[in-house]
Design a protein around this nucleic acid. Structure first.
Length: 467
RNA sequence: GGCUGAAUGGCAGAAUGGCUAUGCAGCGGAUUGCAAAUCCGUGUACCUCGGUUCGACUCCGGGUUCAGCCUCCA
């Protein structure tokens, strides 16, 4: 029985879909004006795993996963001007980059990927409804604002009341607002800015309304799960609730899931602090799967400290797992089904059922790998079967999907030895070995070691891998 | 200032009112021409002070420290 830590209630709750057997989930995606960093990678990977598991539990076709793209906002406009480039050229470029990064990380595409600019009608309709209901007003500057004080449960998600929020407010108060906490629904366009026609004047949507419009239009006005990074909890998600529930008059989302931050030196990784690492840069040094392992080796809510040391450890851990799979590369796990009754599968599911406890699920994978290694010597058939089970369970986390040999051998780095050169040296060493010329053997090993190539002599011959 | 959430062994990171997390690194052994890999074994924890309890790292309260939110951010 799946339990989810619900940010709305602050409690771990039994997950029950609104429509039995069907799950609808919306996750706030990227604002596309720059490359994705490791913080974005965490959202992508975490919700990819959540989706994989939901599909496992409810069936692949019974889960609808929507992840939006914000392709119009102040930062995008500013960046386009800065680059002297068209807005859509800019956003399309970074949408493509985001897809490349996500693909590299083994993140499956969501079922729907709505864009803000393609949902203007729904956005305008929502703004109008909010005005009609007395929840929104047009200020003197023309902008349309949501009147927060009119929504009595405002602050329910962030667990704050309006008084607390106002007393701590550091925001420069816009004169046209009736209350400092009111937020923009529709923003008047300045000269030269992209705009859409509306009865309030040419303008563009505020940041929060688009997500209300996109989620409601793709999943309906009441759905199961809404997710995103912790930094979106307030004000973004709080405002989404105010907008959506303000429009419909009923509950918007049952379960809110927020993933924790990635930190650098115990500080939040963020664009504003400038301490962020771009996914594609990290991929130059570490395999994508190492990043994925690093992310999943801690619970999605915990803070995650980014460092080379931690990525190195992830690489070492994955190496251990792949060593166990090394002899089974030629077996296709696609023909295998998870043995649901096995103790390992039970423990794995139990971990995942408990609010997607991926670190614990991973610990089961290690137990399995040890068992595989033990069986290798005594019962090759059982070893092979268990290895396939290991791959099948790991697949739910998007791990161990690579070819073991390829993972361990990695790829030739610039100026490094080619696979052919390595194999040639190994052959020379094998010849020396037959003559029991140990000093020559060691010379070749040391030579390769200097190139970060590690040799392993096994009864079946010499294997190698890159450090 | 208000609010939220953390504090676990050398490092990373889980669970749990009494019993081994797991991984990386370390140490001992098996194995090996030497290694590596693997297997077996092993040490080091639960921020602090009180309370509840037969028993608390685990529950409750105070304190300390850290992070985050209250402003754009996944």
């Amino acid at each position: 029985m799946l339990h989810i830590q619900n940010t709305l209630s602050g409690k771990k709750e039994l997950f029950t879909p609104i429509h039995p057997g069907k799950v609808k989930m919306y996750v706030c995606g990227m604002t596309v004006y720059d490359f994705c960093h490791i913080g974005h990678a965490r959202v992508l990977v975490v919700f990819d795993v959540i989706t994989r598991y939901l599909r496992k539990v409810y069936g692949p076709d019974n889960v609808t996963y929507v992840r939006n793209i914000t392709d119009i906002d102040d930062k995008i406009i500013a960046r386009a001007i800065e680059n002297g480039e068209d807005i859509s050229t800019l956003t399309n470029r970074f949408i493509e980059a985001m897809h490349e990064d996500a693909d590299a990380l083994g993140v499956k595409r969501p079922d729907m990927e709505p864009r803000a600019t393609e949902h203007m009608d729904e956005i305008l309709e929502m703004v109008q409804t909010l005005i009609d209901k007395g929840l929104a007003y047009q200020g003197e500057n023309g902008d349309v604002y949501y009147q927060v004080s009119q929504f009595k449960t405002y602050g329910q998600l962030a667990k704050k009341n309006l008084d607390e929020l106002q007393s701590g407010s550091r925001v420069e108060v816009e004169q046209s607002k009736r209350d400092p906490m009111d937020f923009v629904l529709w923003k008047m366009a300045k000269l030269g800015e992209p705009s859409w026609d509306s009865k309030w004047g040419k303008g563009r949507p505020g940041w929060h309304i688009e997500c209300s419009a996109m989620s409601v239009s793709s999943l309906g006005d009441h759905f199961d799960i809404h997710g995103g990074g912790l930094d979106l909890k307030f004000p973004h998600h709080e405002n989404e609730i105010a907008q959506s529930e303000g429009c419909t008059g009923h509950k918007f989302v049952n379960y809110w899931i927020h993933n924790g931050f990635v930190r650098v030196d115990d500080e939040k990784m963020s664009k504003s602090l400038g301490n962020f690492f771009i996914i594609r840069d990290v991929l130059k040094t570490y395999a994508a799967e190492v990043i994925r392992y690093f992310i999943l080796n801690s619970h999605y809510m915990s803070p995650l400290n980014y460092s080379d040391e931690n990525l190195d450890k992830g690489k070492a851990s994955l190496t251990t797992l792949y060593q166990a799979l090394l002899e089974f590369d030629d077996i296709d796990p696609a023909n295998t089904v998870i043995d649901e009754g096995s103790e390992y599968a039970q423990r794995f599911f139990q971990a995942m059922d408990d609010d997607f406890n991926t670190p614990m699920a991973i610990s089961v994978l290690f137990d399995m790998s040890h068992e595989v290694n033990r069986l290798k010597g005594s019962d090759a058939e059982s070893a092979s079967l268990l290895a396939m089970q290991l791959k099948k369970l790991a697949e739910l986390l998007g791990l161990l999907e690579s070819n073991a040999q390829q993972f361990l051998q990695g790829s030739t780095s610039e100026g490094g030895l080619s696979d052919e050169a390595i194999n040639e040296l190994i052959e020379q060493r094998v010849a020396a070995k037959q003559e029991k010329n140990w000093s020559e053997c060691d010379r070749i090993r040391d030579l390769l070691d200097a190139e970060d190539i590690l040799l392993e002599d096994t009864p079946e011959g010499t294997r190698w891998r890159r450090k």
